[in-house]
Measured scan of single mutants.
Amino acid sequence: MKKYKITVYDEKTGEKHTIEIEMSEEELEELAKKLAEKHNVKVRIEKV
């Protein structure tokens, strides 16, 4: 498992949230996809 920083940005409201999380790359990609689809936000992932 690796550490990642996830930034979620909502273009409508301008809200931006960043968290650090430790998980596998596959789980992370699935999480990012679900966030983007369900909440209509942009998701950026960076390795820490």
Rank of each mutant, 00 (worst) to 15 (best):
M1S: 08
M1D: 04
M1P: 06
M1E: 03
M1I: 09
M1F: 12
K2M: 12
K2S: 14
K2Y: 15
K2P: 03
K3R: 13
K3G: 01
K3V: 06
K3N: 04
K3D: 00
K3H: 05
K3M: 09
K3E: 01
Y4V: 02
Y4E: 00
Y4Q: 00
Y4T: 00
Y4H: 01
Y4M: 01
K5C: 06
K5M: 07
K5Y: 06
K5H: 05
K5L: 06
K5W: 06
I6H: 00
I6P: 00
I6D: 00
I6Y: 02
I6V: 07
T7F: 09
T7C: 07
T7A: 02
T7W: 06
T7R: 01
T7K: 02
V8A: 02
V8F: 12
V8P: 00
V8R: 00
V8G: 00
V8K: 00
V8M: 08
Y9D: 02
Y9T: 07
Y9C: 07
Y9M: 06
Y9L: 07
Y9I: 09
D10I: 05
D10M: 04
D10P: 00
D10R: 02
D10S: 05
D10F: 11
D10A: 02
D10N: 15
D10T: 02
E11Y: 14
E11D: 07
E11L: 14
E11R: 06
E11A: 09
E11P: 12
E11G: 06
K12T: 12
K12D: 12
K12M: 11
K12E: 10
K12C: 13
K12Y: 09
K12F: 10
K12V: 12
K12H: 10
K12P: 02
K12R: 11
T13S: 06
T13Y: 02
T13K: 04
T13R: 03
G14L: 04
G14V: 00
G14H: 05
G14M: 04
E15S: 07
E15N: 07
E15L: 13
E15D: 07
E15F: 13
K16P: 04
K16M: 14
K16C: 13
K16F: 14
K16T: 15
H17F: 15
H17W: 15
H17A: 06
H17M: 12
H17N: 06
H17E: 06
T18E: 07
T18Y: 09
T18G: 02
T18C: 08
T18M: 07
T18F: 06
I19L: 08
I19S: 03
I19W: 15
I19N: 02
E20G: 01
E20R: 05
E20L: 13
E20I: 14
E20D: 05
E20C: 11
E20S: 05
I21C: 10
I21A: 07
I21W: 05
I21L: 12
I21T: 04
E22H: 08
E22Q: 06
E22S: 09
E22I: 11
E22W: 14
M23V: 13
M23F: 05
M23P: 00
M23G: 09
M23N: 01
M23H: 02
S24P: 08
S24W: 11
S24K: 08
S24A: 07
S24R: 11
S24L: 13
E25C: 10
E25S: 07
E25T: 07
E25A: 07
E25Y: 08
E25Q: 10
E25M: 08
E26I: 10
E26C: 13
E26Y: 12
E26T: 11
E26Q: 10
E26M: 11
E26K: 09
E26L: 14
E26A: 11
E27C: 05
E27R: 07
E27H: 08
E27V: 05
E27G: 12
E27T: 09
E27I: 05
E27Y: 05
E27S: 09
E27M: 10
L28I: 11
L28K: 03
L28Q: 03
L28M: 15
L28G: 03
E29V: 11
E29Q: 13
E29S: 09
E29R: 13
E29L: 13
E29Y: 15
E29C: 15
E29H: 13
E29M: 13
E30T: 13
E30D: 09
E30F: 13
E30H: 10
E30N: 12
L31H: 04
L31Y: 15
L31S: 01
L31N: 01
L31W: 14
L31D: 00
L31K: 02
L31G: 00
A32V: 14
A32Y: 14
A32F: 14
A32C: 14
A32L: 15
K33D: 04
K33Q: 11
K33F: 06
K33C: 12
K33I: 08
K33V: 08
K33H: 11
K34H: 15
K34Q: 09
K34A: 10
K34D: 06
K34E: 07
L35Y: 09
L35Q: 01
L35M: 07
L35T: 02
L35E: 01
L35N: 01
L35R: 01
L35P: 00
L35A: 03
L35F: 11
A36H: 09
A36W: 13
A36G: 10
A36K: 11
A36M: 14
A36Q: 10
E37I: 08
E37H: 09
E37C: 11
E37K: 15
E37D: 09
K38R: 13
K38D: 10
K38L: 15
K38P: 06
K38Y: 11
K38Q: 11
K38V: 10
K38F: 11
K38T: 08
H39I: 11
H39R: 10
H39K: 14
H39C: 11
H39P: 15
H39V: 11
N40V: 04
N40D: 09
N40P: 04
N40K: 06
N40M: 08
N40T: 06
V41P: 03
V41F: 11
V41C: 11
K42N: 07
K42E: 08
K42I: 15
K42C: 14
K42W: 01
K42M: 06
K42V: 14
V43W: 03
V43Q: 01
V43Y: 02
V43L: 03
R44W: 13
R44T: 15
R44H: 15
R44K: 13
R44Q: 11
R44V: 15
I45S: 01
I45D: 00
I45N: 01
I45L: 04
I45G: 01
I45T: 02
I45M: 02
E46I: 09
E46V: 08
E46W: 01
E46P: 01
E46R: 04
E46Q: 06
E46Y: 01
E46K: 04
E46G: 03
E46D: 07
K47W: 09
K47N: 11
K47D: 13
K47H: 15
K47Q: 15
K47I: 15
K47V: 15
V48M: 07
V48Y: 02
V48E: 05
V48N: 03
